[in-house]
Amino acid sequence: MNIVVCVKYVPDAQSERAFREQDKTVDRDAVDGLLSEVDEYAVEEALKIVEASEGEVTVLTVGPAQAADAIKKALQMGADKGVHVCDDAIHGSDAAATSLVLAEAIKKATDGSPELVLMGMTSTDGVMGVVPAMVAERLGMPQVTFASELTIEGGSLRARRDGDAASDTIEASLPALVSVTDQINEPRYPSFKGIMAAKKKPVEQWTLADLGVDAGAVGIDAAWTKVIDVAKRPPRAQGTIVKDEGDGGTKLAEFLAAGKFL
């Protein structure tokens, strides 16, 4: 089975993020980025499926030039080839536009007949979690979101979705799109061989024109929502010091009660 894994290059959560003054988007040049951690689980799951049977894993990303690093990491882990959709017009796209570009790229990468598409359940920067559903809708595929376990059997798949109160196991026909949680597996580290092999793996570079997507349908101006303002969170205020003058316990309880902790 051939699998397309959609991955996202996100700012490193540990680095300080800056926003561009002109359009309030994250300044991607000012922060280090990496393959979104949740997407590593999708890559791992794809590799496991292919290793247990056969087929190829294609990693697809839509993002700026630096996003090539996300593809590289997935190739180092063992994916076979990469597709990087990179076009200045995509800058500032919202989830709906992103899903349009992804859907068209998936079609092109699979000659119009994808078998299985995997994604992380959400990006670690935007954290919306809607792109998998949108892409599935655009491709006319069953959407199986938040899978914590996945098995492929013949022409269908079975996935477990864990909720707070219960887990359901659902079945879907293939082709399908599945978004996975961080419970589904333990992503492998690349190996030395993987790092060296990745350098020789093919990565295609596509623009919107290659996909037949109208530049006016994506980007910041086509977005359905607009960021009006971005403000840094104010520094944390000084904590309250409860001085024990024999009644420290009472004061502490009162403080906690006032904050509705008790």
Partner: peptide
């Protein structure tokens, strides 16, 4: 798994020397 024991070992024995 990271390949650390095989860095200086030929591929015939599971290493990665030829790729270094």
């Amino acid at each position: 798994d990271l390949g650390l024991f095989g860095l200086v070992v030929p591929e015939a024995f599971g290493g990665s020397l030829e790729h270094s």
